[in-house]
């Protein structure tokens, strides 16, 4: 394996949890809901996933538990923001505090308990192709799943009627409601999907990337996922680009340090954040005069008038 191949492989694994959480949040925000609790849902997924996997000995059940935990957290958020029309930003931040605490309580008995990670899937024949084989056909199941999710979400949002309705709920919930669509129910399903994806992203951390539990192991990745959704201008393909760009910059700065580049490590560590700003600025400068990118109804509670 060449160094370039190795770097590609690392970038993909480092970016996948970001991508999983981001693609979920993208659907949530497309439906008009801003859930800043991604970090809280993600870490609950990480803790529940590893807890159930250790108790049952089954990685699959662990993954299911992580998805369930993410969805349970999302349901709590939905109860507050959709059922009771509370402020989404405050509810999301509270959800993060709650999730950080509860994950610590759930994870406490499992600190320092090792378990094997989920193995990679080698696609027969294809994985033997030089370069491409290693990068595309020798990954763990989550990587394939994350790409499938991007494809699926892109198809759903732009090629199906349900996707159109979901976007309508995000752009103009009043009109969607007037046309007879159940705005709150659609938003509820979107929020649940976001929770499931965040839980999955958490499970990827605690079951695949670093298979064990430590407190706060998501280390702010939920926040980066939120930034990626914005970077993507709410487009699934761009979310994939954003996640890989960000993950790639992180990995490159680590490699630059390892190679002994004589630049303060803090500057290298700041580059992914700075370059993400630069990249988005360049994109926006190139598409001057384009239409509005953020869903118009984003973050505004909607209460149907009867």
């Amino acid at each position: 394996m060449t160094l370039a191949e190795a770097i590609f492989l690392t970038v993909i694994t480092a970016s996948t949890p970001l991508l999983l959480a981001a693609i979920g949040e993208l659907v949530v925000e497309r439906s008009g809901v801003l859930n800043l609790g991604v970090e809280g849902m993600m870490i609950m997924g990480a803790a529940s996933g590893v807890a159930i996997a250790i108790i049952t000995g089954s990685s699959l059940l662990g993954v299911v538990a992580a998805i369930g935990a993410g969805m349970a957290m999302a349901a709590l958020f939905a109860l507050l923001t959709l059922g009771l029309a509370t402020n989404q930003v405050a509810a999301g931040l509270s959800l993060t505090i709650f999730g950080l605490g509860l994950s610590g309580v759930i994870g406490a008995p499992f600190v320092g308990v090792p378990r094997a990670g989920i193995p990679r899937i080698e696609v027969p024949i294809l994985s033997d192709i030089p370069v491409i084989g290693a990068i595309f056909f020798r990954q763990d199941p989550f990587v394939y799943l994350s790409i499938a999710l991007v494809l699926g979400v892109a198809w759903f949002l732009w090629r199906t009627k349900a996707g159109l309705v979901l976007r309508a709920c995000g752009e103009n919930p009043v009109s969607a409601h007037a046309l007879g669509y159940p705005v709150l129910r659609i938003r509820f399903l979107a929020v649940l999907f976001g929770g499931a994806c965040a839980g999955l992203g958490g499970a990827y951390l605690s079951l695949v990337l670093t298979p064990f539990w430590t407190a706060g192991m998501t280390a702010g990745r939920g926040w980066i996922a939120l930034a990626i959704v914005v970077f993507a201008s709410w487009l699934p393909w761009r979310a994939m680009l954003g996640a890989y760009l960000f993950g790639g910059l992180i990995i490159l700065q680590l490699h630059a340090q390892s190679a002994g580049i004589r630049v303060p490590s803090q500057l290298l560590a700041a580059l992914p954040y700075l370059l993400t700003i630069v990249a988005l600025t360049v994109i926006m400068a190139l598409r001057r005069g384009g239409g509005q990118v953020a869903p118009q109804g984003l973050g505004r509670p909607f209460v149907p008038d009867r």
Partner: peptide, 15 residues
Amino acid sequence: DMTLVFQGMLLFYIL
């Protein structure tokens, strides 16, 4: 962690 859970819960109620 327990105190964080409690704080989160409080915030939910207030909201």
